[in-house]
Amino acid sequence: MGRLLRLQLLHLSLNSFSGKFPSNISHCTQLRVLNVISNELTGSIPDQLGSLLKLTHLWLQGNHLPGKIPEWIGNFSSLYSIALGDNNLQGRIPNQLGRLTSLGNFLVSSNNLSGMVHSSIYNISSIHIFSVTDNQLRGELPQNAGITLPNLEVFAGGVNKFTGTIPASLSNASRLRLLDFAENGLTGKLPAESLGRLKWLSRVNFDDNSLESGKAGDLTSLSFLANCTNLEVLSFSRIHLGGELPESIANLSTKLRIFTMGGNLIYGPLPTSIGNLVNLTNLGMEQNHIGGSLPDVIGKLYTLEGLYLNLNIFSGPIPYSMGNLTLVTRLFMEGNRFEGSIPPSLGNCQNLLILTLSSNKLDGTIPKEVLGLSSLSISLSMHVSKFFEWFPTR
């Protein structure tokens, strides 16, 4: 292959090529696109490839390449897209990559990279996809990130060791669609007012950080996100949010599919306005202090597949309207104070796989309509006197 001296495009992705990366490709000095994504290649990236100075796309993602990211990649002045994710790369991201002034895509996720991202990389204004998720990277996110990276569409650094606050300047990156820094050590407040200016924002995930104060009023800023009319994913679980869920969640985008706020310090009732979010597929409110009756409007969320209400202080009966959730597969309601009997309408949930009702105050019998769900796994706690009444032949 190294004899193909006029070769410009090499696409070998999604195959089962194995062995070490062939260094003689370095003779193909006219090469512009090198694409071997999703193969079984091993061995470190050969230094000989440093001669491919006309490369615009270097796609090595999804192999088994160990070693470090070569510093000589910084010499590829025409490089537009670099994809090195899902390998076994380690060490630091070379500072030399900051010289790639034409770079648009920077994807190095799912490796074992460490150290800090050099400020020169955050200054490459042409970048629109920045993904370093699932590494061991540390340091603070630059507060002017939205100014130095004005063309950002994807800004993803989840599952790392980033610290500091979320840059409010991200509101200047008007094209931003995906913002994901879950599972880091970020602190401070959610800049919801700034994020609310991003009209194309579709996914926000800050799960598992040390944000907010756990005090009343933390959730009032959610109203700013109503301006994000393309929002599909909103994940703020386990970030120390406190206060009551405001009725203004009714104004969140009707495109919202995933809405998770589990493991916080939220109290008060679940607002009836939750019924406006008609396209939800997953609603996660577990491990909070949300109480009162579960509103009947929950039955209007016809597209729900997962409902997580466990470990709260809900009381009163389980709404009969939950039988309308015919697509639901996971229904977690344990660890509350639900009373009365299990509504037979749950038998309409033909896709239900998991139903957990343990540690409540339920009584009566399990309806035959529910027992008839052949794929269902039920977890309940019960009074001993009720056991043989519920399972007389089992």
Score class of each variant (00 low, 15 high):
198 L>K: 04
15 N>Q: 08
17 F>P: 08
377 S>R: 15
157 G>C: 04
150 P>M: 03
371 L>F: 00
330 R>Q: 11
247 E>R: 07
220 T>I: 10
160 N>K: 01
262 G>E: 02
320 Y>W: 09
289 H>I: 10
226 A>T: 10
384 V>E: 12
20 K>L: 10
141 L>Q: 04
161 K>M: 13
160 N>H: 00
188 G>S: 05
310 N>S: 11
163 T>Q: 12
214 G>S: 00
165 T>V: 14
319 P>E: 05
300 K>C: 10
140 E>L: 09
174 S>L: 09
161 K>Q: 15
206 F>Y: 09
8 Q>M: 02
297 V>E: 06
5 L>N: 13
157 G>N: 03
16 S>E: 12
174 S>W: 04
59 W>A: 15
138 R>D: 13
198 L>R: 03
121 I>E: 08
57 H>N: 12
12 L>V: 07
159 V>Q: 14
1 M>R: 12
235 S>G: 10
246 P>W: 01
28 C>Y: 01
162 F>Q: 07
339 E>F: 04
227 N>H: 13
80 Y>L: 15
117 V>E: 05
337 R>V: 03
392 P>A: 02
139 G>W: 08
99 R>P: 06
187 T>E: 15
83 A>N: 13
164 G>P: 05
348 N>C: 03
295 P>M: 07
33 V>S: 14
317 P>W: 00
135 N>K: 10
171 S>G: 05
84 L>R: 09
255 K>G: 04
34 L>N: 01
196 G>V: 02
164 G>Y: 04
379 S>P: 05
80 Y>H: 14
278 V>G: 02
339 E>M: 11
327 L>P: 03
147 I>D: 13
109 S>V: 06
143 Q>G: 14
314 F>H: 06
29 T>V: 09
41 L>Y: 03
280 L>P: 00
228 C>Y: 00
347 G>N: 01
75 N>Y: 12
129 I>Q: 13
90 Q>N: 14
99 R>W: 06
193 E>I: 10
176 L>C: 07
294 L>C: 04
334 E>F: 09
179 L>S: 00
230 N>H: 13
190 L>W: 03
262 G>P: 03
